[in-house]
Simulated scan of single mutants.
Amino acid sequence: MSLKSRLAAGETLCTAWSGVPDALTVELVAQQGFDCVTLDMQHGGHHEDSVLRGLAPVLAAGKPSLVRIPVGRFDMASRALDFGAEAVIAPMVNSVEDARQFAAAMKYPPVGARSWGPTYAFPRHGQGSQQDWLRKSNERTLAFAMIETRAALDVLDGILATPGIDGIFLGPSDFSIAWTKGGTVDSTHEDMMETIADVAARAHAAGKYAAIFVVDPAVAGRVVKMGYQLLAMGSEHALIALGASVLLADVKKSIGNRQ
């Protein structure tokens, strides 16, 4: 099933977050229990070539793939889709004009201005005709505009109303920096949680999806109740650190029990 169809069915999905620009590493991440995999070009190390190669093992694992592009690189949104991504996350969408440019890169006419050329995406997904692909692409692909600043919050309704924007992605760390005027970085800062809930409610009211990065797993249940369906987590750094910690703790416990 596609990412869009699963979200439309009301599922709550967990996406791994890959920042290591290596297809073999992406393959290992894709084989874990996550519902989908996101390749991060903004703060992660992914670049155009690693996205092109890294999407292949995600698709081979039968999972949806997403790409977070660098700030303002709306041209990369089109390329990510042409490489085979089902969804693109655009950071720092701080105005309606940002949203319009992002949507234009994501959707074919008449909704947007995306250029035709699914050189890798069409054969990688391998079904139907090119006419079917064109007809269904605007509906199948998902454009997530990141809400991370007070400027974005001020024009949230305009962003949500922009044709071609399918959902928002709340970046809680940057949002906390903006919320506290540079005072702290705290993804679960209590003073902003009511506003984070309101962002999700407004997205749903506009018929759009709500996604969020979950830094602290303990907050997952709370944000799901707010209406966030797509939860991002689990960078390679976090997965390796957590796996090593659990493995070493079990080994040391076993050694201690035998002494």
Rank of each mutant, 00 (worst) to 15 (best):
D82L: 04
D82C: 04
D82E: 15
F83S: 03
F83C: 06
F83I: 10
G84L: 07
G84W: 13
A85P: 11
A85I: 14
A85G: 05
E86P: 01
E86S: 01
E86C: 01
E86Q: 12
V88T: 10
V88E: 01
V88P: 00
I89R: 00
A90K: 00
P91S: 02
P91G: 01
M92G: 01
V93P: 01
V93G: 01
V93E: 02
N94G: 03
S95L: 02
V96A: 10
V96N: 13
V96W: 06
E97Q: 15
E97V: 13
E97T: 15
D98P: 08
D98Q: 10
A99K: 13
A99N: 09
A99Y: 06
A99L: 10
A99W: 08
R100K: 15
Q101W: 03
A103V: 04
A104R: 14
M106F: 09
K107N: 13
K107D: 03
P109W: 11
P110I: 05
P110E: 11
V111E: 09
G112W: 09
G112N: 11
G112I: 11
A113L: 15
A113V: 01
S115C: 06
W116A: 05
G117S: 14
G117N: 08
G117Y: 10
G117M: 07
P118W: 13
T119M: 14
A121C: 09
F122K: 02
F122E: 01
P123L: 10
P123G: 05
R124A: 05
R124H: 06
R124F: 08
R124Y: 13
R124T: 07
H125I: 12
H125K: 07
G126Y: 14
G126K: 12
Q127E: 13
G128R: 10
S129F: 03
Q130K: 13
Q131C: 00
Q131S: 08
Q131L: 14
D132Q: 15
W133I: 05
W133Q: 03
L134V: 05
L134M: 12
R135A: 05
K136Y: 11
S137N: 12
S137A: 15
N138D: 08
N138W: 08
E139I: 09
E139V: 04
E139N: 00
E139C: 04
E139Y: 08
E139S: 06
R140F: 03
R140H: 09
T141P: 00
T141D: 00
T141W: 03
L142A: 02
A143W: 07
A143V: 15
F144K: 07
F144C: 04
F144V: 11
F144P: 05
F144I: 12
A145C: 15
A145V: 11
I147M: 07
I147T: 02
I147L: 09
E148H: 04
E148F: 02
R150C: 04
A151P: 00
A152T: 00
L153F: 14
L153P: 02
D154A: 15
D154K: 14
V155C: 13
L156I: 03
L156P: 02
L156N: 04
D157F: 12
D157Q: 11
D157K: 15
G158W: 06
I159C: 12
I159Q: 12
I159S: 07
L160D: 00
T162G: 03
T162D: 02
P163Q: 03
G164W: 10
